[in-house]
Amino acid sequence: MGTDLHKKEMRFVYGETLNELIAQNPNVMCLEADLSKASGTNPTVLNKYPANFLNVGVAEANMISLGAGLASEGKVPFCASFTCFASRRVYDQITISVAYANMNVKIVGTAPGITAGPNGGTHMCFQDLAIMRAMPNMTVLSPCDAYELRACLRWMAAHRGPVYMQLIRMLQPQVFDDGCQFAIGKAVRLRAGGSITLVSTGYMTPFALQAADELAKEGVAVDLLHCPSVKPFDAEALVASARRTGGVVTVENQSILGGLGGAVCEILGEYHPVPVKRLGVPDQFGEVASEAYLFEKHGFGVKHIKQACRDITARSRK
């Protein structure tokens, strides 16, 4: 019998899974910087495990270094805030207090990319995957649905070392089920096909799935690799797929510079150069706007994914 996890907002799955992890290991802690309701841990974690819940106020830098101090004493802090504050605002604290010192701190960036929605351009962080990926010792994850989120969190609690994870706060379409197992450094082949390789992560994976299914009806067989583990990245699966298809499209809820598309191009450039199209936000800031508007403006909605797959398929056949 399933848990219907996908019928819950992802942030509540985060809070409930933290409770599960605290029950298993009392050293797991929930750190917040005055956004605990937005993260879904208040009241879920606060009420059940008040001693494991620490709200530091609007002081993200302090939250990260404090987390390192807690970790030095054997605690396993999960530190959450909006992606803009959980990554770029505290980049040096994460770099030195956490990654350089190799502390067992988990950082959760909520409302990634365009899902920051009405908070607009100041809060739309398009570079967290890129900058966190560039940091030694750091693992970077972006789960796409509630089941995968829960699996990622379980893995994070069991893994000793710094991890950054994007957390989509809202309801997400179901991709996996209760059997979902997260394997670090592994891509998940959601569709198998020989025409084109499509690589997605996090928020964009359900859109990539839709594009792949619609393309199948046109006779374009998409090899869809969903990559919850942005770092370490599954280079082997990517190169094997590109060898079969001869062309790659990437799509992410991020800038096309340095994130998922960057990782794919680095690997292909070195091991198996093929035509690539990166979809996401070009080198621009966000703005207050609907998802449909932003997809249209920057060209990374379902129709753009389909068009890019057709274009690259045609190019790679020449």
Binding site: A61, I64, S65, L66, A68, G69, L70, A71, E73
Partner: peptide, 29 residues
């Protein structure tokens, strides 16, 4: 650098962060 030196309790070097680390260690205690 706590990674290499026995007896050092916290890796530091970027100013401003050590006091927060100490707060975390004290809170954990």
């Amino acid at each position: 650098d706590a990674r290499y030196v026995p007896g050092i309790d916290m890796t530091t070097g970027s100013l401003g962060q050590g006091l927060a680390c100490a707060c975390g260690a004290a809170y954990a205690a």
